[in-house]
Design a protein around this nucleic acid. Structure first.
Lengths: 154, 154
DNA sequence: TTTCATTTGTAGCCTTGACTACATAAGGTG
DNA sequence: CACCTTATGTAGTCAAGGCTACAAATGAAA
């Protein structure tokens, strides 16, 4: 018995697919790349906050801030150290490197703009905070600038 | 020799941390949850597009659209099938279930609003497309509504 | 019908990011 | 100082989402 008639098999196409947009793949690849940096940005931003507020950043505070176990924090911090964003030694607290500080400053500024922008649009604060957390990592310089234009009433 | 003076050790805190926001952890958890649904939404959306454009959705076209290997697509599609969003059988093309279709419609509508919104703000199309791809998954109904208000000139 | 390029599938590996369970260091307190 | 709570670290597991290399099915064409 061959395949049932109502279950389409593959269809051989000679033409290279009528192209649903040339750069589709590239867009997705850029988005995946942005993705892989989200954690790093969230961490350095929170580490910077903790240092300002408490004078030091500790694994347990990061764990509380992110809602994960301390083990997850420790392993993530190890990766950040491997990537040159933080410095830490066993049983000591966590410090930002120069690169980490720069990234934290950028991330924080962008986060603030996105949050203020959403609230300026009338989005309730609670919702805006959640959305900003997810959105910020995908806001390009161009879009950030557009947000700032709106905020400054231009 | 004890620890060097210039490398701070831990500091014992009696108070439960001056609270850098009560719901910080919750926000991050919501963001992580949104995260885990991104691929599913991207896939059903693209599958719907392919069906409209070519009459069927095939693994190789998805691979081209996402810029990944066909193996990644096949394994992702297996997860979507496990989760009840698509139906497929070995060597056959991919179909959306009822649930998958609904999700695709929602995702597509939201994607369109986000893209149009960014372009309405003056973000160049190429950049807007990339940003929309990342942003859309973190846009709550409230924020989406705000975007639509702006688009309708309210 | 046989062949063969294309497509799909399988096996196995890697990284990230999450977890539990257990082990060890730090440092306040009695 | 010894004790004991808190914080940190280690070991091992898991799922998602990537990959390469190889195997098998499809379907068009010779």
């Amino acid at each position: 018995m061959k395949a049932q008639k109502n279950i389409p098999l593959r269809i051989r196409r000679t033409k290279p697919v009528p192209a649903s947009g040339a750069g589709t793949a590239v867009i997705q690849q850029i988005t995946r790349a942005a993705h892989s940096q989200e954690r790093a940005q969230d961490y350095v931003e929170t580490i910077a906050d903790l240092i300002v507020e408490h004078g030091e950043a500790r694994a347990i505070d990061l764990a509380k801030a992110f809602g994960v176990t301390h083990v997850t924090v420790i392993r993530t911090v190890q990766r950040l150290q491997r990537d040159g964003l933080v410095n830490t030694r066993p049983y000591r607290s966590i410090f930002l490197t120069e690169a980490g500080s720069r990234l934290a400053v950028q991330a924080k500024a962008r986060h603030r703009v996105v949050l203020e922008f959403l609230m300026a649009l009338g989005v309730p604060e609670g919702v805006a905070k959640v959305d900003a957390e997810g959105i910020e990592h995908h806001v390009s310089p161009e879009t950030l600038e557009a947000f700032q234009r709106v905020l400054s009433g231009a």
